[in-house]
């Protein structure tokens, strides 16, 4: 990786919120390809994930890194090919019907996007019919459901049943995450995986999508 790309990567790792646009622009002005700059940014996010795993970085740093990525992408996105992100697979993300919490879901979305997944974010309080439509429309390989409240866990099985009824369940892997989720719940609801945090979510979806 050249000097400019190293600077871009370091800006992500150092959480340079104010300077990232300037640094990305400088790299492009120096002749770096947009895709190479994006790869450097994603490599930076990978390092942030490692630091989080090692206990050096905390949730606040992970969220800030996501914000730095967004600022950098403002410069980069108009220059990128539409298909340059998302080679690892398509994941439909949402918070279940009856629940409007989205910090965890958004963070998972950022981490997946920067790790090479195409993310279709349906938002919060999402009805099962919308999930089925999105999986079909985007030919998604996996879905990620966020649920914070124990009183809303039945929405998980509603989605699983709706995907089965639509004949889509065999072709799509399902992961859940959120404060009230446990392995026991994952087994009971018939989903494929349970994630503890956004960094683990990347490993889970890589495994589920076979990437």
């Amino acid at each position: 990786m050249g000097e400019h790309l190293e600077t871009v990567k370091k800006a992500i790792v150092d959480l340079e919120l104010e300077d990232i646009e300037k640094i990305v622009s400088s790299a492009l002005d120096a002749g770096e390809e947009p895709q190479a700059v994006l790869d450097a940014m994603c490599a930076g996010m990978g390092s942030v994930g490692e630091l989080f795993d090692q206990g050096e970085y905390f949730l606040v740093d992970l969220v800030l890194a996501g914000e730095v990525m967004k600022e950098g992408l403002k410069v980069l996105e108009p220059l990128l090919e539409a298909e340059s992100m998302g080679q690892k697979g398509t994941v439909v993300l949402f918070t279940v019907k009856g629940d409007v919490h989205d910090i965890g879901k958004n963070l998972v979305g950022t981490m997946l996007s920067t790790s090479g997944f195409k993310v279709v974010d349906l938002g919060v309080d999402v009805p099962k019919e919308k999930v089925v439509d999105a999986v079909r429309e985007h030919s998604a390989q996996a879905i990620g459901m966020s649920v914070l409240l124990t009183s809303m866990v039945d929405s998980i099985s509603d989605v699983v049943s709706a995907l089965s009824a639509a004949g889509l369940r065999d072709g799509v892997k399902i992961a859940i995450g959120g404060a009230c989720t446990t392995q026991q719940l994952a087994d009971k609801m018939g989903v494929d995986a349970l994630g503890r945090d956004a960094v683990e979510a990347v490993r889970i979806f890589e495994s589920l999508c076979g990437s």
């Binding site: 206990g55 970085y57 905390f58 949730l59 606040v60 740093d61 965890g104 404060a179 503890r196 945090d197 683990e200």
Partner: peptide, 12 residues
Amino acid sequence: AYRSGPMLSPAM
């Protein structure tokens, strides 16, 4: 904190 640890670093 959330399920895998503190939200902020102890120093912050």
